[in-house]
Design a protein around this nucleic acid. Structure first.
Length: 376
RNA sequence: GGGGAGAUACCAAAGCGGCCAACUGGGGCAGACUGUAAAUCUGCUGGCUGAUGCCUUCGUAGGUUCGAAUCCUGCUCUCCCCA
């Protein structure tokens, strides 16, 4: 998978570039909407492409493996065909579920033993099996199985954790190289840097991970509860080590501010459930700040949802109407809020690319960050 | 006309002598949410207070009692059955 860098910002480490996949090109920095179970929740594929112009979306190995099951995905001809999404897809490995489902799993050198959250059945995810499953799902970018170290973890535990992640990567990467794509199109495997909030571990992990000849590298184990300052410190340390000519993916991040700060440190790819999940829960991100649509103050505000918004919903519906839908738990409320938030995130990335290319990213970023933190 | 049941906070509904400012739902208000076990979860919801605490509440007017939402009597209203 080819990656070319177009423009480097003079005063920060931000850069624009382009990633070439078998399902199309991706302009970076990019935000990837999360579609865990083969759907970006509450958003149609047609809306994703026509209204939002999402360049790439995520899927999740763990979820798709449990339901509908890999046989069904194979019969469908892969996830692209199954969900009728012909643009790029990235699948997460299930490494995050190692973290978030910690109550129902057990880690060994062999792999991660899970109890299904659906029916309690037991499943062993090995680094090799995770590659096999992702071959069958057929995403353009697939992720190595890692342990997303929980926060807080002491130095000793975090050190042990990166060793496990490195061990799994060695096996997973080898297996990746020995297997072929199932559907003919190219797949790239991204390994994941861990190390919790310890600089020395992050340096060690980045050094180890980046010896693998991958098409891109990910930073994992952040935005899991640690103070933001620590997250920025880790991103800063690690992006200094990661190869310049490969895309850098900061997993699971984040708030609009988190993303802009990370772009400034040279991160190219982001994903986060925040725009969709928080949207469903009534929270809207806008260029002027954050709105909780459940708040009483919007009940008779008949002005446009977001006068600056670029999505059709922003210009079609009022704040009072969306509040009514959210309060009433109407499905359309979740749809409108998700569309708006994703649209905003994607607009923010587009603007960031534009400002980097124009050489005015730094000033713009600082101005935006001030506005984004407002509570409306 | 006769017989029976019931009236509790915004709504519904527990409580049936002290542990009751009153279970629980809903509604309302606010908060959280970062590689999605999430269209989810948490807190508050009589008044004043930072907290302890104090004050006013269980249809209404009296009464019994050290003490009543809880027991007794009158009244008002609602519902059901029989005529």
């Amino acid at each position: 998978m080819k990656f070319e860098i177009h423009h480097k910002d003079a005063s920060t480490r931000a850069r624009t570039g382009k990633l070439f996949t078998s399902h199309g090109e991706i302009e970076t920095p990019v935000f990837m909407p999360v579609g865990t179970a083969g759907t970006v929740k509450a958003v149609h594929q047609r809306e994703l492409s026509d209204d939002l112009n999402a360049q790439i979306i995520l899927g999740n190995t763990y979820h798709l493996y449990l339901r509908p099951g890999i046989d069904i995905i194979r019969q469908a001809g892969g996830l692209h065909q199954f969900m009728n999404w012909q643009r790029p897809i990235l699948t997460d490995s299930g490494g995050y579920q190692v973290f978030s489902l910690s109550g129902i799993r057990k880690l060994t050198a062999e792999g991660a033993l899970f109890s299904s959250h659906i029916d309690g059945s037991k499943h062993l995810f090995t680094p090799e099996k995770i590659i096999e499953i992702q071959r069958t799902i057929g995403a353009d970018i697939i992720m190595a199985l890692d342990e997303c170290t929980s926060f807080p973890s002491d130095h000793k535990a975090a050190a042990k954790s990166i060793e496990l992640t490195h061990h799994w990567l060695e096996r997973g990467f080898a297996h990746f190289q020995h297997t072929e794509p199932v559907y003919g199109h190219e797949q790239s495997l991204f390994p994941i840097i861990q190390g919790s909030v310890y600089k020395d571990l992050r340096i060690r992990s980045a050094g180890e991970i980046c010896t693998y000849p991958a098409d891109g590298y990910a930073i994992g184990g952040l935005s899991v509860g640690e103070p933001e300052e620590l997250m920025y410190e880790m991103v800063d340390v690690v992006t200094g080590i990661m190869p310049e000519d490969k895309p850098r993916y900061l997993m699971g991040v984040g708030t609009p501010v988190n993303i802009l700060e990370s772009v400034a440190m040279g991160v190219d790819m982001f994903d986060c459930v925040m725009p969709t999940r928080n949207g469903r829960n009534g929270m809207l991100f806008t260029s002027r700040g954050i709105m909780n649509m459940r708040n009483n103050k919007w009940k008779d505000d008949f002005t446009l949802l977001d006068p600056d918004g670029t999505c059709f919903v922003d210009q079609h519906y009022s704040k009072a109407y969306l509040r009514h839908l959210i309060i009433s738990k109407e499905i359309l409320g979740a749809q409108i809020a998700s569309l708006h938030n994703l649209s905003f995130y994607l607009w923010l990335m587009k603007e960031a690319r534009k400002k980097i290319n124009e050489g005015v990213f730094s000033d713009w970023k600082n101005k935006m960050i001030k506005q984004l933190s407002e509570r409306l």
